[in-house]
């Protein structure tokens, strides 16, 4: 892949070395105004932009499953995009020994004006498959995603669940070995979720590496070996999954106490959104 500079000699699968990413300030921000100005005055926010991540260093070894935890806007998606190479760091470097598949917002890449078949080619193409490879994988994708209707019909009418399932199946059909997953490790209805989970666990035992950002880490009990907790633009914990989970809980409690915009309820207690990506 042109975007991903690979280094096959690298011992680890992924290495973040002092990575920083500066997101430029937007002209108009939702809910801006006085609170915003105060924050800038207090030095929390600069005029030119803010560091979503800074000085992030970590090594992901082969076969590891790492959870990326944190509050909202803690830079989880950015970390995954950096891993996959769809974001270029402003500081530091990211090295990878193999291609990283970005499973980030895949459902939004679909085009309603295309047929199901065309969309499969489109998303496959975006994820680095060439049309011939897609053609070979097509029957399996259609079957796994459980698309019963005519695949030459427009996708426009398909439900969010179907689109999620389709996106997930295409991503799995790429045959990648390292995954950067944003909230879509398992998708679809409960039955499909179970199948997804079985599949990713199978991949894990056969040596695939996962980097997963999720709001509901408890759902994947036993899947993760490690957790990276992001807060205030940096890594606050990088170690055992249980410790990461405990820290995340503390962060959430502290946050609901100080920030009134954060929902009072524990996110894990809420029903999961249908369209999670």
């Amino acid at each position: 892949m042109a975007r991903q500079r690979l280094d096959p000699r690298l011992a680890a699968k992924l290495v973040f070395d002092g990575v920083g990413i500066l997101i430029p300030k937007k002209k108009r921000r939702q809910g801006g105004g006085r609170r915003h100005r105060l924050r800038r005055f207090a030095g929390e926010q600069s005029r030119t932009g803010s560091w979503v991540l800074r000085g992030v260093s970590s090594r992901i070894e082969a076969g590891e499953s790492v959870a990326v935890l944190g509050l909202k806007n803690s830079g989880r998606t950015e970390l995954l995009r950096l891993a996959a190479g769809t974001l270029i760091p402003d500081e530091g470097s990211v090295m990878r020994s193999d291609q990283v598949l970005p499973m980030i917002g895949l459902g939004r890449a679909f085009d309603r004006g295309f047929t199901v078949r065309q969309n499969i080619y489109l998303l496959g193409g975006l994820l680095g498959m060439n049309p011939n490879e897609v053609e070979v994988a097509l029957p399996e994708i259609v079957e796994t995603a459980g698309i019963t209707s005519n695949i030459d019909k427009y996708l426009g009418g398909a439900s969010a669940l179907t689109r999620q399932k389709l996106a997930w199946t295409i991503a799995m059909a790429t045959g990648a070995n390292i995954f950067a997953v944003d909230e879509m490790l398992v998708v679809g209805d409960p039955e499909f979720r179970a199948r997804c989970f079985a599949h990713v666990q199978h991949l894990k035992t056969s040596g695939a590496t996962f980097l997963v950002a999720t709001d509901v880490p408890r759902k994947f009990d036993g899947f993760f070996d490690r957790a990276i907790v992001l807060h205030d633009g940096g890594v606050v914990a990088d170690g055992a999954f249980a410790d990461g989970l405990a820290l995340l809980r503390e962060l959430r409690l502290a946050n609901t106490a100080t920030d009134p915009t954060e929902p009072k309820t524990d996110p894990e207690a809420r029903p999961e959104p249908e369209e999670g990506f």
């Binding site: 892949m1 042109a2 975007r3 991903q4 998606t77 995009r81 996959a84 190479g85 769809t86 291609q99 598949l101 970005p102 499973m103 980030i104 917002g105 895949l106 939004r108 890449a109 193409g125 975006l126 994820l127 680095g128």
Partner: peptide, 13 residues
């Protein structure tokens, strides 16, 4: 047109 593509596309920009 579709900023979401930039998040996940492995193709050159």
């Amino acid at each position: 047109r579709n900023p979401a593509l930039l998040q996940m596309s492995l193709l050159p920009t």
